[in-house]
Design a protein around this nucleic acid. Sequence first.
DNA 1: ACTTGACGGCTAACACCGTTAGCCGTATGG
DNA 2: CCATACGGCTAACGGTGTTAGCCGTCAAGT
Lengths: 182, 182
Amino acid sequence: MADRVQQITAAARELLETEGPDALSMRRIAERVGIRAPSLYKHFPDKGAVEAALQAQGMAQLAQELEAIEAEIGVEPPMPALARAYRQHALANPHLYRITHTRPLARTALPEGLEDRAGMPLVRAAHGDIDIARSLWAFAHGMVVLELDGRFPPGADLDAAWRVGCEAFAHAIHAKSQGDTA
Amino acid sequence: MADRVQQITAAARELLETEGPDALSMRRIAERVGIRAPSLYKHFPDKGAVEAALQAQGMAQLAQELEAIEAEIGVEPPMPALARAYRQHALANPHLYRITHTRPLARTALPEGLEDRAGMPLVRAAHGDIDIARSLWAFAHGMVVLELDGRFPPGADLDAAWRVGCEAFAHAIHAKSQGDTA
DNA sequence: ACTTGACGGCTAACACCGTTAGCCGTATGG
DNA sequence: CCATACGGCTAACGGTGTTAGCCGTCAAGT
């Protein structure tokens, strides 16, 4: 009889990961918890609220994994490692990634500061340049969603695309730092 | 009594653009055409097929707009103008862009060569380097979907993010060309 | 100790969704 | 003249999110 809210989000997450987003229905979630669908509304106002809870989970997990990579590498240039971790997170949790990052973010339901925390590794990689950080984020997100949606041609060399993108941004960061100190 | 298929796709497109993706139901489409929902299945095998027709429309329109920009600019560096056109297309047709580019592409329902045609402007901007073209595409797509989903912070300077991204890729293209001739 | 009220289940139901089965009028071609 | 294909239709199925309303249990207050 642990916290029902937690039980429900756990059931939702398992359902999402094992059977995909179409299986994420209120009735299926309730079934997994052992209650009926209308009872879910005693704990969540609507389906969007349980999806928001999943977004919070996805965001927290991404933040944690990126921070782990930052800690692992030393003074190495962080970009290729960060990019690899970002892509790996998305490929390992495709449905969670999509529900977390490919729809409006339920910011009010998010733990304070979590969104910023998830973004900081990229900001640090960009030496604090917020514009570069945002375009770098867009690049990584774009690569990931295009891959998840099967949008690249079948034989496309995505490692190469990631590499040239990372190099382009690494150069931009380097040039910006030079310009700053000059 | 013009081609019912065309009538249906036109109704679907109007519905999508004016009321958003939730309004794109078989019953609503049929209502707009003046028939009942089951009759749609005399012309399309399922809802996915009419969505595929919309994807074809979205892809063709994007290709045409990018080609128009290419023709308009002369030997100027094409990237900022292409990026502007790409973004403008997405912002002007947000629902069409999403249905066209943020799900698996129904390639079999697409006119022959259209997908390649839509990608060629970016390939040409990348001087034929397919890896740069793909990462550039990911950058543009990422910027666009993050903006459409309201993922950037409220006051974010997206023009600046687009600019630094374009500059980074422009430099990569330039460097690659130098390296090729060297 | 009795009552009250909140909590968290439940069933029934509504309005919608995509889709199928099966019927029927029309219009065309052999 | 007949047959067949075309393109409408109604009825229905199983699914969706969600609401209304009922009821048992359990804790707190008087």
